[in-house]
């Protein structure tokens, strides 16, 4: 009985690092120095995760379903404040590109507000979304500081022209009207890698690089690194350590030469994605 379990284990459930002993904690690192804003990660995500292509009109009305998006920000060049950035076609210093997707927060604000518990935290650090359980109250979407949750405002699956339904990925569902969806860190790939590891006889260990997310796989500059943060030898853990970014820390200490930061980490949502700041040569 769920309630009985909840009452008995209340203090356990309230522990900060409840899944401490789990072998996996999925994390990511995105190097903005390497990102060129080409958008291939976005395309890969569309293909991998059965995302509906909504068309120009619905994109314009804010109904696009890109789990991953490339945000562009322009910075005012130092000393040249007279340049009107918004008006200029080719701004002086180019744009900042930020690939933005679900940050798989460890203190996810979307989780406690769902009335039916359709979104919850998995032991391996993922912020899971159960489509079958979702009733579409959209509170999670409001409470997400990154606004990376996407709601099926229309029945997009109806709009897939034949024979394009043949190219849908069979490893995951096509979502129906009225449910919320978001980046899953390609959970279907994690799942199949776990299965393979289990077949090979090691339940608690997946080789680094055995799971590649679709965006990571496609990135031409290898800006995206994905892996297990609990595996000390993994590439992503090394990067996190190098830039002295840690989980369970409210604000990271600023270290010289370390470019790591997590977006909006001052909100204490504990995102699992580390970004590496872009360094610019302002003299050039």
């Amino acid at each position: 009985m769920a309630l009985k379990r909840m009452l008995e284990n209340w203090s356990d459930l309230r522990k900060r690092d409840y899944y401490e002993d789990e072998p996996y904690m999925w994390g990511m690192s995105i190097d903005l120095n390497k990102c060129t804003g080409c958008g291939s990660c976005v395309t890969a995500c569309y293909a991998e995760n059965n995302l509906p292509v909504v068309g120009k009109e619905r994109c314009g009305s804010g109904h696009a379903m890109h789990w991953m998006r490339i945000e562009r920000y322009w910075e005012e060049p130092e000393g040249e404040t007279d340049i009107d950035i918004e008006q200029s076609d080719y701004p002086e210093r180019g744009a900042h590109y930020t690939p933005m997707m679900c940050q798989q927060c460890n203190h996810a604000p979307c989780e406690p507000v769902c009335p039916v518990a359709a979104t919850y935290h998995t032991p391996d650090g993922l912020n899971a979304q159960v489509y079958n359980r979702c009733v579409g109250s959209r509170y999670c979407g409001n409470n997400c500081p990154y606004k990376v949750r996407y709601f099926n405002f229309f029945d997009f699956s109806k709009d897939i022209p034949a024979p394009l339904e043949m190219q849908l990925n069979p490893d995951l569902s096509v979502r129906s009207k009225g449910v919320m969806e978001k980046c899953t860190f390609c959970v279907q790939r994690i799942r199949s890698a776990k299965d393979k590891a289990e077949d090979a006889g090691h339940r608690d260990y997946i080789e680094d690089g055995a799971v590649k997310t679709a965006c990571q796989q496609t990135c031409p500059t290898e800006a995206i690194v994905f892996g297990n943060l609990k595996d000390d030898d993994s590439k992503v853990k090394t990067l996190w350590a190098e830039h002295e970014v840690e989980l369970n820390r409210h604000e990271q200490e600023k270290v010289e030469d370390a470019r790591g930061y997590r977006v909006l980490e001052e909100l204490n949502v504990e995102p699992s994605v580390m970004y590496l700041d872009r360094v610019r040569d302002t003299e050039a």
């Binding site: 009305s61 804010g62 109904h63 409001n142």
Partner: peptide, 8 residues
């Protein structure tokens, strides 16, 4: 005409 971010 609700959309993202105007979920409500």
């Amino acid at each position: 005409l609700m959309n993202k971010p105007h979920f409500w």
